[in-house]
Design a protein around this nucleic acid. Structure first.
Lengths: 136, 136
DNA sequence: TCTGACTGTCTACAGTTGTAGACATATCGC
DNA sequence: GCGATATGTCTACAACTGTAGACAGTCAGA
């Protein structure tokens, strides 16, 4: 039982996972409904994706009557962080800063989030001696 | 001639692109050499990937003698930004802030980059009325 | 000019992903 | 108990991906 499913999510799988994450847990029917509305998918499509996600360890099931309740095995944030790590691994020398800048620009952030990020940046430049060259 | 290749890069394709991006432009041989060292790939593997990348519009070629010079059609940063956009599209309500925090933590950023990010954050909280609710 | 080395092209093939129909079966209401 | 409905399973199949061998054309050196 791999607690952290290692296999990355394919695009269609992200869509299904997002539906389940939003609802915390749900039945196949709910996913089918929402996926039909959002992506126009046939129920079979959703069912196949759910099955594969269970196989890969991204979803857990609990049997309820003749059906399953699907539940993510890890929080959405963790999956996002994994994907972000992959992204960063692909970032060449000097592109990380601009990349983060781009993402900040694209994002709606709350005041709290902005404050937390600011704090992080300050921490960075305070305690990382390698980056302490040009500041007074 | 699609100036911005829309098809996303597969993992193996990122690896090849990164080699070409680092060198700005190069011959297949160079890529083969580096890819062999880094990933243990056979030359055929590299050649297939180069061909597919050209087909998809990620690489351009210039014929030189009996061989090609491969050159990226867009800068690495742009490809990264596209991938980042996809990542953000998968981010649920409330996960974007923590996600960015995670990325900042994982990244080595220069003083200049830190300063630029800080400036961006300040700009955000200054001019976005939606986020100006809790601050004095 | 002949040949060897190198380059790109063709072909291959297994595994993954996107998409979905067919179908057996379990359940719940009557 | 029986049938209608819903649920999961099996099967399918094309496209994409990872990986690579075989081969043909070409350029340079002998």
């Amino acid at each position: 039982m791999p607690n952290e499913p290692s296999e990355p999510l394919a695009p269609a799988e992200w869509k299904v996972m997002n539906i389940v994450w939003r609802r915390k847990r749900c039945a196949a029917r709910d996913v089918c409904e929402e996926a039909k509305g959002e992506h126009g998918w046939a129920p079979s499509t959703v069912k196949t994706l759910l099955r594969r996600l269970v196989e890969k360890g991204h979803l857990q099931t609990t049997q309820v009557g003749n059906s399953f309740l699907y539940r993510p095995t890890r929080p959405a944030l963790r999956a996002l962080e994994r994907a972000a790590d992959t992204l960063l691994r692909n970032a060449l020398e000097g592109t990380v800063g601009p990349l983060l800048a781009h993402m900040v620009k694209r994002s709606q952030l709350s005041d709290d989030e902005l404050a937390e990020l600011r704090a992080l940046l300050d921490e960075r430049s305070d305690d990382d001696p390698l980056t302490r060259k040009g500041r007074s």
